[in-house]
């Protein structure tokens, strides 16, 4: 295994482009090192991207949008008061990953690019409409988070491409997001189902826009349009919530495995969708939940 510590994204992309065999970027390492230790993947080339200037920064633009460096660990997102006020769901989703110790290292982009269908921050990023800057051997591009995972363990990034920044939209008014997951314990489990809801209201409390994303119920994260439509135009009455639950369950295409059965996942997706929507709605109304 070759270990590299580039100081620019162009250098990182060039290293990855020239490498042969298995290549991994090292952000927090909480997936890469586990896979190394468990003999699942021993990269031939490991590119540590934490020495690139700026990768540890969180900044807000004048328009209210946010840029999060690709090496910012969950713990630092949690400690950033303003980010947490704007995007509590996204921050919580990231915070649910692993233990305090894992939080000291794990990153959003690592969670996304590892490609696990159960990754916690991914539904929250998708619901929030997060986009990513990507540096490649031939230049830069911007891509929506929802378009990154293509199959379990696989992303749409081409050889030599490295994510160089995370862009979170401006929060806007009367809007809120939330993320909930189901796990059998209280901590230290991989999601059996995850659900993120991001919505905006008009001044009457009617939902004007919504995005609902589900994790761990299909080979990749799902952005469920029917579920969003169930909410839009409602003020989250019981009927709307039931429609939401049905749409969420209907969208599921899960597997039965050691973590849960098809039946269980499908049912719980509906339950979580309702619970998550209620929190997001309360937040959009300015409640501190």
């Amino acid at each position: 295994m070759q270990y590299h510590r580039p100081t620019s994204f162009n250098e990182a992309a060039a290293l990855a482009n020239q490498a042969t065999g298995e290549t991994r970027f090292l952000a927090g390492g909480t997936d890469v090192l586990v896979q190394l230790r468990a003999d699942i993947v021993t990269p031939d080339t490991l590119i540590d991207i934490k020495s690139i200037p700026g990768v540890g920064d969180i900044s807000q633009a004048p328009d209210g949008s946010w840029t999060i460096g690709i090496a910012v660990p969950g713990a630092e997102m949690r400690e950033h008061v303003q980010l947490g006020q704007d995007w509590p769901g996204l921050v919580e989703a990231m915070d649910l990953i692993g233990s305090t110790q894992v939080q000291g290292r794990a990153t959003l982009v690592g969670n996304l690019c590892n490609g696990s269908p159960a990754a916690d921050s991914v539904p929250a990023m998708v619901a929030a409409g997060v986009e990513l800057s990507v540096t490649g051997p031939t230049g830069n591009r911007r891509i929506a988070a929802v378009d990154v995972p293509v199959a379990p363990g696989r992303t749409s990034l081409a050889k030599g491409e490295v994510v160089s920044a995370v862009h979170v939209p401006a929060r806007g008014t009367n809007a809120g997001d939330a993320y909930l997951r189901f796990i059998p314990r209280t901590e230290m489990d991989i999601a059996v189902v995850g659900c993120a809801v991001n919505l905006s209201l008009d001044t009457e409390g009617t939902v004007t826009a919504a995005r609902v994303a589900l994790g761990a119920v299909a080979p990749t994260v799902l952005l469920v349009e029917d579920a969003a439509n169930a909410l839009i135009g409602s003020s989250l009455d019981d009927k709307a919530l039931d429609r939401l639950a049905s749409a969420a369950s209907a969208a599921c295409n899960p597997i039965s495995d050691k973590r849960g059965t098809v039946e269980f996942r499908t049912h719980v997706a509906g339950v979580l969708a309702k619970r998550t929507a209620k929190i997001a709605y309360a937040r959009a109304q300015g409640e501190n939940t």
Partner: peptide, 16 residues
């Protein structure tokens, strides 16, 4: 055996 790590063999953690 499908769950040979503590992440999937679920012993109680402090918050449980």
């Amino acid at each position: 055996l499908q769950n040979s790590i503590f992440l999937d063999y679920r012993v109680p953690v402090a918050s449980d």
